[in-house]
Amino acid sequence: MFKQNKIIDDWNNCSDEWFSNTKFDELFSALDKDPYKDFPQTMAAMIKEYYPDLKGKNVCVPSCGDNTAVFSFCALGAKVTATDISYKQIENARKIAEKMSFNVNYHVCDSMKLNELSDNIYDLVYTSNGVHVWINDLNAMYSNIDRILKKDGKYMLFDTHPFGRPFDSKKVDKGIFEIFKPYEEVGSFGEVPNFHWRIQDYVNALIKSGFVISRMEEFHSVIDDIPACNYLSEESDINHDNFNWHSNRYAALPQCLGLCSHKV
C-alpha cells in the first residue's frame, strides 16, 4: 500500500517553516521588474514561445508547493488555479495571495486525481521542480491533466533531470560522486516515499495519456537563475565554482528537464 498519508503529513508539518523561510518580498520585487523571473531561463523561453501573451488565459498549477510559479503566472496576467494535496500549503499560500490581491482559485486535491477540477477548461497546465518525486502513478496524473485541458492546450513540466538521481546527493554536495542505485531503479525510496522517474517514464506516460510531445529541453542551472528560482538561498551561500564542470564534474550532467506537450 502506497504511504500517501506520509507525504501529506510531512508537508503539513513543514509548511509553516517553509513559507516563513521563503523570501516572498524579494520574489515580488523581482516579479515587478520581470514577471518571468521565477522560471528558469529555458522554461521562460518555452512559455514565451507558446504563450507570448498569458493575459486572461486559464492556467492550472497542480502540486503548487511554495506557489512561486503560481504568483509568477498571476504577474503575467493569467487566471490561475492552484492545487496541492497538503491543506497547510494551500492555507499558507492563500494568505499570501490575499495579501497581494492575487485572485487565485485554490483547491486541496491530489494531482493524480484533480477531482475538484472540471474538464476542458485550461489553456496551460504547469508543474514545477520537485513535483514528480511525490507521484506514484504518472499515467493517472497525466490522464487527468489531459482531461482538464482544452483541446490544443499545453502541459509543461520542469523538474530535476533523472541523470542525477543515481548519485547520493548528500555526498555530491561534498564533491564525492558515489552511485547508490541504478538509473533503472525508480523506487519508491524512503519512509516518506518518493520516486526517481526516468525520461522514458515521462515520455511513455505522456503518450499513453494522449499527449503529443512538442518539445524537450535538457539544461543546466545557470547562476542568473539561482536567487530567482530559489528564494531559500542566500547569495553568499552560492558557490559559483559549482557551475563550472571543470571544477565540479557533476555540473557536466544536465541538471534540469523541461517538456512541453499538447492535447489533441
Rank of each mutant, 00 (worst) to 15 (best):
Phe102His: 15
Arg215Phe: 10
Cys14Thr: 13
Leu232Gln: 01
Tyr202Trp: 07
Ser72Thr: 04
His107Ala: 04
Asp10Ala: 15
Ser247Cys: 08
Lys48Met: 03
Ile121Gln: 15
Phe189Cys: 02
Cys74Val: 05
Val172Thr: 12
Val108Pro: 01
Asp168Gly: 01
Asp146Leu: 14
Ser111Arg: 02
Ile148Thr: 07
Tyr122Val: 07
Thr83Val: 08
Gly77Asn: 07
Gln41Lys: 08
Gly258Cys: 08
Gln41Pro: 10
Trp197Pro: 04
Asp224Gly: 07
Leu124Asp: 03
Phe28Met: 13
Pro40Ile: 03
His196Tyr: 13
Cys260Lys: 11
Phe180Pro: 07
Glu184Gln: 00
Lys150Tyr: 11
Leu114Arg: 00
Ala97Pro: 05
Glu26Pro: 06
Pro254Val: 06
Phe243Val: 11
Ile199Phe: 03
His220Gly: 00
Phe243Ile: 06
Lys6Tyr: 14
Glu191Asp: 09
Ser214Arg: 12
Gln255Ser: 12
Asp32Val: 01
Ser247Phe: 13
Tyr202Ile: 00
Phe73Asp: 01
Glu178Thr: 05
Asp10Ser: 15
Asp152Phe: 08
Pro182Thr: 05
Trp18Thr: 09
Met43Arg: 06
Glu191Ala: 05
Glu49Ala: 15
His262Trp: 04
Val61Trp: 13
Asp9Arg: 13
Phe71His: 13
Trp11Thr: 03
Glu191Tyr: 04
Val222Leu: 07
Glu185Arg: 01
Lys95His: 13
Thr42Ala: 15
Glu184His: 05
Phe71Ala: 03
Phe177Gln: 00
Glu178Cys: 00
Leu257Arg: 02
Val203Pro: 02
Trp245Phe: 13
Lys174Met: 05
Ile223Asn: 09
Ala30Lys: 11
Val80Ser: 09
Glu98Ser: 14
Ser86Tyr: 01
Ile8Pro: 06
Asp152Trp: 07
Lys23Gln: 02
Gly130Phe: 12
Ala45Leu: 11
Asn204Glu: 13
Lys48Ser: 05
Asn92Tyr: 12
Leu117Val: 10
Pro182Cys: 00
Asn58Leu: 12
Ala45Val: 09
Asn21Lys: 04
Ile238His: 07
Pro40Asp: 06
Pro193Arg: 03
Pro62Ser: 12
Trp11Arg: 10
Lys154Tyr: 15
Glu235Ala: 02
Pro166Ala: 04
Lys99Arg: 15
Asp34Glu: 11
Ser86Arg: 00
Leu149Cys: 15
Asp66Val: 04
Tyr202Ser: 03
Asn67Trp: 07
Val203Asn: 06
Val186Ser: 02
Pro40Thr: 08
Leu124Pro: 13
Asp53Glu: 09
Thr83Ala: 11
Pro254Ala: 10
Ser261Glu: 03
Cys256Glu: 14
Gly153Ile: 00
Ser118Asn: 14
Leu27Met: 07
Leu257Cys: 00
Phe177Val: 09
Phe219Gln: 12
Phe24Thr: 01
Ile135Cys: 08
Gly187Gln: 02
Cys14His: 08
Arg94Ser: 15
Pro40Phe: 14
Glu98Trp: 13
Ala69Lys: 01
Ala93Cys: 01
Lys174Asn: 09
Met1Ile: 11
Asp237Gly: 11
Val222Lys: 09
His246Ile: 14
Val133Leu: 11
Leu157Tyr: 08
Ile207Gln: 08
Tyr126Trp: 04
Cys229Met: 02
Leu27His: 03
Leu138Lys: 04
Lys170Phe: 12
Lys208Ser: 14
Arg147Leu: 07
Ser143Lys: 13
Trp245Tyr: 14
